[in-house]
Amino acid sequence: MAAVQTSGEKALNRVAIVAVLVITLIFLAPIYWIVSTSFKPRNLSTTIPPTIVFTPEVSPFVKLFTKRSQLREPPTAEEYAAAPWWERMVFDGGEKVVRDGKGNVQWSAYPNRFMNSLIVAITSTVLAVSMGTITAYGFSRFRVKGEADMLFFILSTRMLPPVVVAIPMFLMYRAVGLNDTHWGLIILYTAFNLSFSVWLMKGFIDEIPKEYEEAALVDGYTRMEAFFKIVIPEAATGIAATAVFCFITAWNEYAFALIMTNRRAQTAPPFIPSQVGSGLPDWTVIAAGTFLFLLPVAIFTFLLRNHLLRGMSFGAIRK
């Protein structure tokens, strides 16, 4: 890069910066929309033109986490005074929080669905990445008969749009009792991600000189020890990149989750829109659910950002 820039280069730089800003704004607009809606009072959520300036409130989140029912008549003054601050917000919206016989607040299904999403996405990511890494290591280090064919077969499992097999999969799952179970979704997502994980990890492991492991073998270590002590730390960058991709795929998956689950193992993606249908749609609650749903991927990616920066430039892990 030139240390001294000409005026032409400077102008070009400015244009580039403006372009990047515009593109960033376009990409961030829907996210802003969701985040701002999740802090709006219900009556401002569907105004035209959209309300930009408003007093943010957390009532959408209160509603998101509680079970509510429509009020036939407004609460009495005593009821209103006795209620905690967050319950008043629900009263203000013309609803009341449902309590059981002992007066305990009934939670909505959202935390449970969110947990399901976490369980399914994390477990399937761990499985896909670990199995993918081991498989890739085998292909990378050993002479495997029919290696090219097998690798192509693994890749070819991705050529079919998954939804095509949704109905047969549903029937199979019903037959073996896997529908609406965590394991059902975990197996499914692991299978989706595995081929991708094998291919990505093979690229990374191919880049690690096999001399390192051989040195360890000669130094008195078993291949297993060499794999864990030498290969895994070297492949950390690749593992991180692969894990992020697998996690995002599993976290965002909608179609199969919708078909295969309905209560027990239902994940957040099919659950959030299902709230649209009950009564009048409360877009602020849906936005709040969506906003929280965006966070784990953002956090996960943020935590691994250093690995990712190097990992995305595939093949450039060596200095």
């Binding site: 000189p209 390192y212 040195a215 073998l217 000669v218 008195g220 270590y221 078993t222 730390p233 070297e234």
Partner: peptide
């Protein structure tokens, strides 16, 4: 005998040190 049991030492042209 595996590589470990032969008790030989190997020095290579490069990549012979463990990174990290």
């Amino acid at each position: 005998w595996g590589a470990a049991e032969r008790d030989v030492a190997l020095v290579l042209q490069q990549y012979s040190l463990y990174p990290r």
